[in-house]
Computed example of a mutant assay.
Amino acid sequence: MTARPGDIDSAAIDSGAIDSRAIDRAAEVLRGGGLVAFPTETVYGLGANAADGAAVARVFQVKARPPSHPLIVHLGGAEHLDDWAAEVPAAARLLAERFWPGPLTLVLRRGRRVPLETTGGLETVAVRVPAHPVALALLEAFGGGIAAPSANRFGSVSPTTAGHVRAELGDAVDVVLDGGPCPVGVESTIVDAMGEVVSILRPGGVTREDLEAALGRPLAAPATSPVRVPGQHPSHYAPRAQVVLVEPEEVIAEAERVQESGHQVGVLLPPAFAGAEVKAHAVVALPASMAAYAQRLYAFLRELDQRGCDLIVASLPPEQGLGAAIANRLRRAAGPRPTA
């Protein structure tokens, strides 16, 4: 079966049932060294055969991603963990048992089958089992690990629908599997699990509170680990518009000030100010639920770009639970942009 770049296999899920033809076609593309974008519970991933250095190199090329930034290897189940990691400490096995499938990535020592292209030249490997039926069906049909960062240009807003993938990457992806909107909406939590002392390297869909409850002890501070992982670049998850962060009670005044100065301002309006009139180009009223906010965060940023905003005024949510992941993404989105 020949892949036709430009297609979206929108029948990947049909009335709750997965289209096995679409899955088989995508698995064949992966075996041939091609690229498949597929849904996970977090964001859409741009996948390649994790054991094929040449295929992985194409992921970096399509994303314009620095080759030193490691990729996450997606597995079909925790039973495959020892195939990809040189050693798996007891804490890592406990977390895998508790949170997989799910939005948790474990950083472990690289197994010999993992090429350095996949790990960004590091002797560590990041692995997870996604909690999405299309992703799991693809992994089962393929029969190996799939290296997959988010399916977008490096540093830009992550995709949470198949349409986002095609709009940004176009025909550079051989197959796009459409599994609908991603239910979590922010990337996985990444933890350094190489020893019994576990630390969060990137907050995400599994909260610090849940990890500490599972381990029965507090997590170490992130600064204790020198490990390089995805999502650490100062400017990341960024829309085209500049993002400015202020205190929640200052959002309306700051938005109106910069709108009057000539900007086309978009506003992420905190729930406490729902219904308030704001003199701005575009206003998105944020949901009170952190889960709903996380699920739609990237769609909100894309919407404000599409509505012609050149500046977005936002504030950080309380940094408990999923609020920590949202705040991390907003800080990166507001980070210093690379100069031409």
Score class of each variant (00 low, 15 high):
residue 279 K to S: 14
residue 169 L to P: 15
residue 327 A to S: 10
residue 90 A to S: 03
residue 221 A to H: 13
residue 298 Y to N: 14
residue 73 V to L: 04
residue 325 A to K: 09
residue 124 T to Y: 01
residue 48 A to Q: 03
residue 189 T to W: 11
residue 123 E to Q: 07
residue 274 A to N: 14
residue 120 G to C: 01
residue 68 S to M: 10
residue 42 T to I: 06
residue 107 V to C: 10
residue 115 P to K: 05
residue 305 D to T: 05
residue 260 E to W: 01
residue 141 A to L: 11
residue 253 A to E: 15
residue 145 G to D: 05
residue 281 H to D: 11
residue 258 V to P: 09
residue 287 P to G: 06
residue 227 V to W: 11
residue 144 G to A: 13
residue 163 G to C: 01
residue 318 P to D: 02
residue 254 E to M: 12
residue 36 V to M: 03
residue 235 S to K: 08
residue 184 V to P: 00
residue 280 A to R: 15
residue 182 C to H: 10
residue 209 E to F: 04
residue 5 P to K: 04
residue 48 A to H: 00
residue 339 T to L: 06
residue 260 E to V: 10
residue 189 T to E: 09
residue 200 I to W: 12
residue 255 A to S: 15
residue 7 D to N: 14
residue 300 F to L: 06
residue 67 P to E: 07
residue 73 V to D: 00
residue 284 V to C: 13
residue 172 A to F: 13
residue 8 I to C: 09
residue 322 L to F: 06
residue 235 S to Q: 12
residue 260 E to K: 13
residue 260 E to C: 03
residue 105 T to F: 06
residue 76 G to L: 11
residue 298 Y to Q: 14
residue 201 L to P: 07
residue 240 R to I: 05
residue 309 C to G: 05
residue 186 V to K: 11
residue 67 P to N: 01
residue 264 Q to I: 07
residue 204 G to N: 07
residue 6 G to K: 14
residue 204 G to V: 01
residue 46 L to K: 03
residue 197 V to L: 07
residue 80 H to C: 15
residue 30 L to F: 12
residue 109 R to G: 09
residue 234 P to G: 04
residue 318 P to W: 00
residue 64 A to P: 00
residue 118 T to Q: 03
residue 244 V to N: 07
residue 163 G to I: 06
residue 16 G to E: 12
residue 192 D to S: 02
residue 173 V to M: 04
residue 209 E to V: 02
residue 200 I to A: 05
residue 279 K to W: 14
residue 140 E to S: 15
residue 110 R to A: 14
residue 143 G to W: 11
residue 232 Q to W: 04
residue 128 R to H: 06
residue 146 I to A: 04
residue 219 L to D: 01
residue 75 L to D: 00
residue 102 G to M: 10
residue 131 A to F: 09
